[in-house]
Amino acid sequence: MTSSDLYPVSRLAAVREATAKAGVDALLLTPGPDLRYVSGYDAKPLERLTCLVVPAAADPYMMVPRLELPAAQASPASRLGLEFVAWDETDDPYRIAADRLGPVGKVGVADRMWAMASLRFRDVLPDTEQVLAGSVLRELRMRKSPAEVAALREAGEAIDAVHRQVPGFLRAGRTEREVARDIAEAILATGHATVDFTIVASGPNGASPHHDVSDRVIQAGEPVVVDIGGQMPSGYCSDSTRTYCVGEPPADFAAYYEVLRRAQDAACAAVRPGVSCESIDAAARDIIAEAGYGDHFIHRTGHGIGVEGHEDPYIVAGNGEPLEPGFAFSIEPGIYLQGSHGARIEDIVVCTESGADRLNATTRELVVV
């Protein structure tokens, strides 16, 4: 798997075609996941403008500060046949981009474009409507190529290697922050380029899905939710949750953990082409509700993943979009008892012609340490 596989030259042509089909005159892609997906360039987010301009009916070009030109030319973007338009410190790069574009009725701005840049583009293109570039790119980004699936699989194997080390980090008397520090080091040691998050939620903190970490001391007999992920050098992300218990688990926790495990298995088993995103959510939610824990499952069942940790498609009630081969997303039901404890099990799966390909392989049984 090379950068040319992950960020093929053909992608830019597909983006231009999608831009025209959407009735958008040009995309303006500043540093962030949209730019990296289209060009492979992991540009620094600076106050100086870097922007890939993709007109629907003209040649694309990359606006870059002159001091960033070597980095841009050394990136995978150099293979795309782009013109690199270097601007100097006394130039107005927004005006340069606007003059080259000419009169346009609608532009798609990167979903993560800073307001500073969006408003500057609005100043120099006052008669131009701004829409989100994601409305153009989402259909392309959702359908992962074999190379993208391979990159996600590599990320899944790397985060699995971290989860296999977690039992050695957990013990009564340590703080969540101490455990999280060990996990962060392991995430980097297993090949990730960045640590995106290390949720270590012990005891009652486990009932808060996005708890993060604290200086709370882990006690004997407490469940601990560990949700971790990062970005690989490829640009593709990992994300996996397992729940552990330091010593013998409480009886009420053990009972609902088994319900949760069945729900997560059922949702994975329901994945196949043509099935709606919301039906995958229902496959997990119905089992949890039937067991009496419906009010304690307080978030969607999953989210897409790729060059972002959270992206389309979202596995949630109300999303009737049918799954297609190549869709990659999490399946992560949870049960959270406020004031007591909580649990979550999360795998990344890819929809294939025959069902779900789970990219995480560590045990989903409760691990008692």
Results as ranks from 00 to 15, higher is better:
Ala77Ile: 11
Gly229Trp: 13
Ala22Ser: 05
Arg262Phe: 13
Leu12Glu: 04
Glu324Arg: 12
Gly173Phe: 13
Val195Gln: 07
Met232Lys: 09
Ala71Tyr: 15
Gly221Ser: 12
Ile159Tyr: 05
Ala133Val: 00
Cys245Asp: 13
Glu248Tyr: 12
Arg143Phe: 03
Arg120Asp: 14
Phe84Ala: 06
Gly156Tyr: 12
Thr241Trp: 07
Ile335Thr: 13
Lys21Ala: 14
Val367Phe: 14
Ala58Gly: 05
Ala22Asn: 02
Tyr37Ile: 07
Gly342Cys: 10
Leu67Lys: 14
Ile187Tyr: 07
Thr50Pro: 04
Gly309Gln: 10
Asp239Arg: 12
Arg174Ala: 14
Gly229Gln: 02
Arg36Lys: 05
Asp357Leu: 10
Asp34His: 06
Met1His: 00
Pro204Glu: 05
Ala269Pro: 09
Glu89Val: 07
Val109Met: 11
Ile187Asn: 10
Cys351Arg: 08
Met113Ser: 01
Pro33Phe: 00
Met1Phe: 03
Gly134Leu: 04
Tyr256Ile: 07
Thr363Met: 14
Ala22Tyr: 06
His341Ala: 04
Ala284Cys: 08
Thr30Ile: 05
Gly206Glu: 01
Glu321Tyr: 09
Ala43Pro: 00
Leu119Cys: 02
Ile96Gly: 02
Asp252Pro: 11
Glu353Phe: 13
Gln130Arg: 08
Ala201His: 07
Leu101His: 13
Lys144Val: 01
His192Arg: 10
His341Arg: 12
His303Val: 09
Tyr236Arg: 06
Ile159Trp: 00
Asp91Lys: 06
Ser214Asp: 05
Glu248Cys: 14
Gly102Pro: 04
Glu332Ala: 15
Asp127Phe: 11
Gly229Val: 04
Glu346Ala: 15
Arg122Gln: 06
Ile288Leu: 14
Arg171Phe: 01
Thr243Tyr: 10
Gly32Ser: 03
Glu178Thr: 12
Asp34Leu: 00
Tyr314Arg: 13
Val136Ser: 08
Glu154Pro: 02
Thr198Met: 07
Cys277Ser: 10
Ile305Lys: 04
Gly302Asn: 01
Glu365Phe: 05
Met142Gln: 09
Ile298Pro: 03
Lys144Tyr: 00
Arg181Val: 08
Leu125Val: 01
Thr194Phe: 01
Tyr257Arg: 05
Pro146Thr: 00
Thr50Met: 03
Val54Asn: 02
Ile280Trp: 09
Arg11Phe: 09
Arg171Trp: 05
Thr2Asp: 14
Pro167Gln: 10
Pro93Ile: 04
Phe197Pro: 02
Arg285Cys: 12
Ser3Ile: 12
Tyr244Glu: 11
Ala57Cys: 03
Gly168His: 05
Arg95Cys: 03
Gly318Gln: 10
Ala20Cys: 04
Val9Cys: 13
Ser39Tyr: 07
Val275Lys: 01
Ser238Pro: 03
Leu140Pro: 02
Arg36Ile: 02
Asn205Gly: 09
Glu332Arg: 15
Ser39Met: 08
Asp5Gln: 08
Val217Trp: 06
Ile187Phe: 04
Thr50Lys: 04
Ala282Cys: 03
Ser354Asp: 08
Ser279Gly: 02
Val307Ile: 07
Ala110Asn: 00
Ser39Gly: 08
Ala220Ile: 12
Glu332Trp: 10
Arg16Val: 01
Ala193Asp: 11
Ser354Val: 07
